[in-house]
Simulated assay, not measured.
Amino acid sequence: MLSEELFKTVVASTPLISIDLLVRDTQANILLGRRANRPARDFWFVPGGRVLKDETIEQAFTRLLKAELGMDKTSGCFKGIYQHFYEDNFFEENFTTHYIVMAFEVIFTADMSVLPLDQHRDYHWFSETELLNNDEVHIHTKWYLQSNKQADNLITAFQP
């Protein structure tokens, strides 16, 4: 684990690599949590988290499934790689946060009572329509369902 000062330097200086989980139930509703921390505090957002140093993507996916959803390993459908830019940061100091995000869709199979409350204060199931039309759902979460925005924000092959 990095010291707080070193982690501040990392966030202020480099992009962070993370995994977001587009979590669906068996009726295709999407689980969002109300963010407790910056960036995106007070918005409804998908669960997820950073990939740690020396951790494979597979290890991070498994760890985040357990930590964020209380689920043991399951398969996920890869949705793409996105770029998220925030004007603020976890430390509430004057620098931005930049994430490179690998998005995966998973089916929720755990008990709602195991969902942690350190990153999200509350959880709610949204239909796609409710999610897309709710101003309290963060735009980065909406991107995962907006095909026109996916192309704009998905990292694709670059052509000169």
Score class of each variant (00 low, 15 high):
L22A: 08
V23S: 05
R24K: 15
Q27T: 11
A28I: 02
L31H: 00
L31N: 00
L31C: 01
L32E: 02
G33F: 07
R34T: 05
R34H: 03
N37S: 09
N37V: 13
R38P: 04
A40Q: 07
A40I: 02
G48T: 05
G49I: 11
R50H: 05
R50S: 06
R50L: 12
V51F: 01
L52H: 06
D54F: 14
T56P: 05
Q59I: 09
A60M: 07
F61S: 03
K66P: 02
K66S: 12
K66G: 04
A67T: 13
A67V: 10
A67L: 14
D72T: 09
D72A: 12
T74F: 04
S75W: 05
G76E: 09
G76V: 10
C77T: 13
F78N: 08
K79Y: 07
G80D: 01
G80W: 02
G80H: 01
Q83I: 14
Y86Q: 08
E87A: 14
F91I: 07
E92C: 04
E93G: 01
N94R: 15
N94E: 15
N94I: 10
N94C: 11
T97E: 15
H98F: 13
H98P: 00
V101P: 03
M102P: 00
E105S: 15
T109C: 12
T109L: 11
A110H: 10
D111R: 12
D111M: 06
L115N: 09
L115Q: 08
P116N: 13
P116G: 14
P116M: 12
L117Q: 09
Q119M: 14
R121H: 08
D122L: 04
D122I: 00
W125H: 11
W125V: 11
F126I: 00
S127P: 05
S127C: 06
E128G: 13
E128K: 15
E130N: 11
L132F: 02
N134S: 12
D135N: 06
D135K: 05
E136C: 03
V137M: 05
H138V: 00
H138M: 00
T141E: 00
W143D: 08
W143M: 06
